Computed example of a mutant assay.
Amino acid sequence: MNIDGKRVLITGGSSGIGLATAHALALRGARLLVTGRRSGLVDAAVDALRATGADVYGVAADVATEDGRAMTMAAATRYLGGLDILMNNAGAVRAGRLEEIQEDEIRTMIEVDLVAPIMLARAALPMLKAEGGGMIVNVSSSIALVALPFYATYAAVKAGLASFGESLRRELNGDGVHVLTVYPSGTDTPMMATNTAGADVGFSLESAAAVAAAILDGIEREAIAVVRGGPDRQAMIDLNRDDPRAVDARFLSIKAAFEQGVRPHKAL
């Protein structure tokens, strides 16, 4: 896909991977609409992007709500006149033992990480189909490929998003809309700020800019998937497929330290 002139909606575009991708897309000539729940962060992101010459607008809206999604789609029509790319990037996470996580926290992850992308894709499809050559980019997680302990709900919704994208890609095959699924590994973003797990339990963080560059490449190639984490992550994915009990044993050996590191992880 040639990005120049494309109209792109990025949910959760006021920080982290979303904002980094907005900067990368702007350099390729995309026109942008970025969303986020906090108006101050959205305004700051728009100002930073415009300072680089980007054609960008912002809207403060909670895509986990019906009203927020309606505001978002209305803004896409008002500011961009339609859509060529929808990037479902907004995310929410709460780690810890399942019985210790509150019901409202579980529901927030389901609504933000799974329901919102499905409903936004549904709402955006008429615009994407009208243009021909449209694309939906769903930002899942490497946890969808190797489910980590203490992230049961988050792993479930991110795996659900990945399966949604795979099914929708096949549904839309031949209809002029492509679906790309992105699987970031640990990324240095505000969403990860409360995760204190370190290299001793296998956690490492790459820059949001590196993930954004990979997403940009995936869009341009119209790739099916972008998987981050390098050879070590791929080896874990392969092992989880071929010998999942070996992965069970690996996590059992670091379980106490892993739980201690991830238990504070909360971004809702």
Rank of each mutant, 00 (worst) to 15 (best):
A156C: 06
M71Q: 15
R233I: 08
A92V: 09
A90H: 06
I254A: 10
R122F: 07
A121G: 01
S15F: 01
A95P: 00
V226D: 11
R38E: 11
T35F: 04
A147E: 05
G68D: 02
L25S: 07
G165R: 03
V247W: 06
A24W: 11
R31S: 05
N173W: 14
R228F: 09
G29H: 04
R241M: 11
T52M: 04
A64V: 08
L41F: 12
T108R: 14
G133A: 06
A54C: 01
V112C: 05
G261T: 01
L25E: 08
L33M: 03
T187Y: 12
I110C: 03
A124N: 02
A22T: 04
V59W: 06
A130P: 11
I110P: 02
E99I: 11
K158Y: 04
A45Y: 11
T194E: 09
I143N: 13
N2P: 08
A61L: 12
G198W: 06
S253Y: 09
G198A: 08
N89S: 09
R245T: 06
L86D: 03
T194W: 01
A61F: 10
I118E: 00
A257S: 14
E103H: 13
E206V: 15
L19S: 07
K6D: 10
G16E: 06
G230A: 02
A213M: 09
L168R: 00
P126D: 05
N138W: 02
E100S: 12
L80W: 05
M191G: 10
V42G: 12
L180G: 02
L83Q: 05
A197M: 03
N173R: 15
V56I: 10
A267L: 10
D188S: 13
N89E: 05
D242I: 08
L120H: 01
H265W: 14
Y154C: 01
T52Y: 00
V115I: 13
D62E: 15
L25R: 12
G229V: 03
V201G: 00
I85W: 02
S204E: 05
F251P: 03
K129D: 00
N88H: 09
M87W: 01
E131K: 14
S15P: 01
E66D: 15
R245P: 01
A76D: 05
A147R: 03
E105P: 05
S167W: 00
A209H: 12
E131T: 15
N240H: 10
I17D: 10
D200I: 08
I106W: 14
L128F: 05
T181E: 01
P184I: 10
V179R: 00
V34Q: 07
A44W: 03
D113E: 07
I143K: 11
T52Q: 11
L98N: 02
G96D: 05
G13N: 07
G133S: 06
V8S: 09
G82M: 00
R38N: 13
A212K: 09
I110A: 03
T189N: 02
D84I: 03
V146D: 07
T72Q: 01
